[in-house]
Computed example of a mutant assay.
Amino acid sequence: MNCWGVIPAAGIGSRLGAAVPKQYLEIAGRTLLEHSLRALFADARVKGVAVALRAGDERAAALACLQDPRVLRVEGGAERADSVAAGLAALGERAAEDDWVLVHDAARPCLDAKSLGALIDAVAAGGSGAILAQPVSDTVKRSDDGNTVAATVDRRSLWLAQTPQLFRLGELTRALAGAGAVTDEASAMEAAGHPVGLVPGPRTNFKVTTADDLLLARCLLAAGENS
């Protein structure tokens, strides 16, 4: 199974309110981007990763992990989909259309090797793309005004999408080109009519978006380093 990766890392992480883009915040001696990149390379089936960076990004030059010959640095875009498309285009010079591509968030540093392996194994066995996702376990409320409960939503069919999301290079490239604004790659594949499988992912594979997330990631990664 020929497998590659794309990490969109051109954002500025404005919601976190940090002094630097969140992918460059350090936890346990490494930036979030380094942790996320290392997580993909933990599986030997990943042959290379395209990292999409903001134009003029000077911090990237200081990261030793980006000097790895398996890493392809490309210029990202204003939106996530633009950065992913740039990464896919760069991989197209090395990979075949029917090769598989893992798209993973730069700010999702706690991906474990077991979950990554389970995703790749599931896709290899089933032959169609899939994503890591977490079944919703809490009671879900819907609010129409942001202040009061309008209804309780049936959670039995609800999942929280995670990354990596794993699809064929050619199919994903075409799906993103015709999808417009999407928040993840699975949405583009769904719109293009492709089946998208669900592989259960752990709660620890969360995206760092808020200060609380950063604190939790620091605890988890520090514990992992100590162990």
Rank of each mutant, 00 (worst) to 15 (best):
N2R: 13
W4G: 08
W4E: 02
G5E: 03
G5R: 04
G5Y: 02
I7W: 05
I7A: 07
P8K: 13
P8Q: 14
A10T: 06
L16Q: 13
L16S: 12
G17I: 08
A18G: 15
Q23E: 14
Y24Q: 06
R30A: 14
R30Q: 14
T31L: 13
L33K: 13
H35T: 02
H35Q: 04
H35E: 03
R38N: 06
F41K: 13
F41M: 12
A42H: 02
D43S: 13
G48C: 10
G56H: 03
D57W: 03
E58F: 05
A60N: 04
A62F: 01
L63F: 13
A64P: 01
L66V: 01
L66P: 01
P69K: 06
R73W: 08
G77T: 01
R80G: 01
D82C: 03
V84W: 05
A85R: 14
A85P: 00
G87I: 00
A89I: 01
L91R: 06
L91E: 03
L91C: 07
G92N: 04
E93Q: 12
A95F: 03
A96G: 14
A96M: 02
D99Y: 07
D99T: 10
D99A: 15
D99F: 08
V101D: 09
L102T: 08
L102H: 08
V103H: 08
A106F: 11
A106K: 11
A107T: 11
R108V: 01
R108K: 12
A113T: 11
K114S: 06
K114N: 00
K114T: 04
L116S: 10
G117A: 04
I120C: 14
A122K: 08
A125G: 00
G126E: 12
G127S: 02
S128R: 12
A130W: 10
L132A: 08
Q134K: 10
P135L: 10
V140E: 06
S143W: 11
D145E: 09
A150K: 10
A151E: 13
T152R: 09
T152D: 04
L160K: 12
G170D: 11
E171N: 11
G178I: 07
G180R: 11
V182F: 09
V182D: 10
E185Q: 12
S187D: 15
M189R: 08
E190W: 11
A191H: 12
H194I: 01
V199F: 05
P200E: 09
P200W: 04
R203E: 13
F206T: 00
K207T: 15
T209V: 15
T210K: 10
A211G: 02
L214V: 03
L214I: 03
C219W: 08
L220G: 08
L221F: 01
A223M: 05
S227R: 15
